[in-house]
Amino acid sequence: MTGIVKWFNADKGFGFITPDDGSKDVFVHFSAIQNDGYKSLDEGQKVSFTIESGAKGPAAGNVTSL
């Protein structure tokens, strides 16, 4: 699925993605970002991701920028 990064705190390594389908915002951890180098996201960035079952509920996985 796709969405827009609502916010991401690079110091803490997590944030939230707002899915394009209008569903509830999804937690994203830096370890789910699939790019080389520094793993961070920018507010407003368009991303593709999967929904994984995290310890505290749904979380984004396999996050790639579009």
Rank of each mutant, 00 (worst) to 15 (best):
M1F: 13
T2E: 05
T2L: 10
G3D: 00
G3H: 01
I4R: 13
I4H: 09
I4E: 05
V5C: 05
V5I: 08
V5W: 02
K6D: 02
W7C: 07
W7Q: 03
W7V: 04
W7I: 04
F8C: 02
N9H: 09
N9R: 12
A10F: 10
D11C: 15
D11V: 15
D11G: 13
K12G: 05
K12D: 04
G13A: 03
G13N: 03
G13L: 03
G13E: 02
F14D: 01
G15E: 00
F16P: 00
F16N: 02
F16V: 06
F16Y: 08
I17N: 00
T18M: 13
T18E: 07
P19N: 04
P19C: 07
P19R: 04
P19I: 05
P19Q: 03
P19K: 03
P19W: 04
D20V: 06
D20W: 06
D20I: 08
D21I: 07
D21L: 06
D21Q: 06
G22D: 05
G22N: 08
S23W: 05
K24W: 07
K24A: 14
K24T: 11
K24S: 12
D25S: 06
D25Y: 04
D25W: 04
V26F: 04
V26Q: 02
V26K: 03
V26A: 03
F27I: 03
F27D: 00
F27Y: 10
F27S: 02
F27A: 02
V28T: 03
V28A: 03
V28E: 00
H29M: 04
F30A: 09
F30D: 03
S31L: 09
S31Y: 05
S31Q: 06
A32L: 03
A32Q: 10
A32N: 08
I33D: 02
I33W: 06
Q34A: 12
Q34I: 14
Q34N: 13
N35H: 12
N35D: 13
N35W: 11
N35T: 14
N35R: 11
N35C: 14
D36G: 12
D36N: 12
D36P: 13
D36V: 11
G37Q: 10
G37L: 10
G37Y: 10
Y38H: 12
Y38R: 11
Y38I: 12
Y38G: 09
K39H: 08
K39W: 08
K39E: 05
S40F: 13
S40P: 06
D42M: 14
D42T: 15
E43G: 14
E43P: 15
E43W: 14
E43V: 15
G44E: 03
G44K: 05
G44V: 02
Q45C: 06
Q45F: 05
Q45A: 11
K46V: 10
K46T: 08
V47H: 01
V47G: 00
S48P: 00
F49R: 00
F49C: 01
F49W: 02
T50F: 10
T50A: 06
T50G: 04
T50H: 09
I51P: 04
I51L: 12
I51C: 06
E52Y: 15
E52K: 11
E52N: 11
S53Y: 15
S53H: 14
S53M: 15
G54K: 08
G54N: 11
G54R: 09
A55G: 11
A55Y: 13
A55R: 13
A55W: 13
A55N: 11
K56Q: 11
K56L: 12
K56S: 11
K56H: 12
K56G: 11
G57F: 07
G57Q: 06
G57K: 07
G57I: 05
P58V: 13
P58I: 13
A59S: 13
A59C: 15
A59R: 15
A59I: 14
G61Y: 14
G61C: 13
G61H: 14
V63W: 01
V63H: 01
T64G: 05
T64P: 01
T64Y: 12
T64Q: 13
S65N: 11
S65F: 15
S65G: 11
L66T: 09
L66H: 09
L66W: 07
